[in-house]
C-alpha cells in the first residue's frame, strides 16, 4: 500500500503526516508513507486544500487533519 500526504509544508500538514505514520504503525499495515510537497504533484490529484491524504492513488480527503483512529479506519 502506498500512502501519500499532500501538503505544502504548513503545520497542519506535518500533523497529518505524523498521524498517518502512527496509524500505519498501530494497525500494523504494510505501507509506505510519503510526504508530497511539490505543487505540480499536488495539483495532479486535483487537490486544492491541503493537507490531503492519498491512498494508492485515490484521494481520501482534503483540507483537514484526520485523527489516528480515523486514518486507521481508512487503512482497513
Amino acid at each position: 500500500m502506498k500512502i501519500e500526504v499532500l501538503g505544502t509544508g504548513c503545520a497542519k500538514c506535518k500533523t497529518l503526516y505524523e498521524n498517518t505514520k502512527k496509524a500505519v504503525e498501530e494497525s500494523g499495515t504494510a505501507a509506505e508513507v510519503l510526504k508530497v510537497e511539490d505543487i505540480p504533484s499536488i495539483m495532479r490529484y486535483g487537490v486544492m486544500s491541503t493537507p490531503a491524504l492519498v491512498i494508492d492513488g485515490q484521494v481520501k480527503f482534503s483540507g483537514k487533519v484526520a485523527s489516528v483512529v480515523e486514518i486507521m479506519g481508512l487503512l482497513s
Binding site: M43, G46, M48, S49
Partner: peptide, 17 residues
C-alpha cells in the same frame, strides 16, 4: 468555503486552470 493561507497556491492554480 474553508480557507487556509497555506493552501492559497493550490487553490489559485486549481481555480484558474
Amino acid at each position: 468555503t474553508p480557507f487556509c493561507s497555506c493552501s492559497a497556491v493550490p487553490l489559485f492554480i486549481g481555480f484558474v486552470e
